Amino acid sequence: MGRRYDCADAEQKAAGLIDAASAVRKGELVVLPTDTVYGIGADAFTPSAVTALLDAKGRGRDMPPPVLVGTVRAANALVEDLGAYGQDLIDAFWPGPLTIVCKANRSLSWDLGDTKGTVALRMPLHPVALDLLKETGPMAVSSANRSGAPAATTAQNAEEQLGDSIAVYLDGGPCADDTPSSILDLTAAVPRLLRKGAISVEKLRGVVGYVATD
């Protein structure tokens, strides 16, 4: 089974972050807590690791994973531009449960699946996730569950579903809230809500004005 670290213990947390960062650099998978649910993470720039992530979930390339970043600067490097509203949304809701879909930087050599030239980005509001992302750089991260099963809200639940397909489990305790992030598509002139989540449409409209929801 994967190596599991209790991040409530300072020594285990430090050792776990080192082990997890090393595993990600080797193209292995890790499970990490976020401010929504637990996620499976892989190096976004290692195609075989992204493929392993999709395999662990039982998903195909038609459902590419989002990318988590530890800094706004990292997000800017991954996109052609943030569109008319991206920076205002980042200022209002990052780090936090908002995923924005932007046109990906075409010069990047990565393969997240069938993205149609876009990338879904989020900066999570969780200290363990941010500490790891600052070590690894951008990570492809999808909810820690088999496709069709409920998202894991504890490290133990993730381990029960994913087993030894994961090298390292970072246990940050139970999730405070299992509501997923809101996903907003910024690739067209009008922002479009792709998934209702933790940030209400009303709050989003307070920043960008109109949001399409159909």
Rank of each mutant, 00 (worst) to 15 (best):
A188Q: 15
V69I: 13
A188P: 10
K103H: 15
F93T: 05
D62R: 09
E202T: 15
C175V: 08
A140V: 02
Y5D: 04
P138Y: 00
L193S: 08
P124D: 10
G41R: 03
G148F: 07
Q87K: 11
A42Y: 08
K26L: 13
A23P: 05
G60I: 05
L130K: 03
D9Q: 11
I40G: 04
G58M: 05
G39I: 08
Y85G: 08
P174A: 13
A92D: 09
R195L: 13
K103P: 11
D43F: 11
D214R: 09
V211L: 03
R205P: 06
Y5G: 07
G113R: 02
Y85Q: 14
E135H: 12
S109P: 08
E135M: 15
R3W: 13
L121H: 00
T213R: 05
V69T: 04
A15H: 11
D171Y: 01
D19V: 12
R3E: 13
V211G: 06
A20M: 08
P66R: 02
N105K: 11
V31E: 02
T115E: 11
G27Q: 10
D35K: 02
A23D: 03
T99E: 08
A212Y: 07
R106N: 10
L204S: 11
E160R: 15
A23V: 08
I100C: 06
I40L: 14
A176W: 09
V67T: 10
A56H: 04
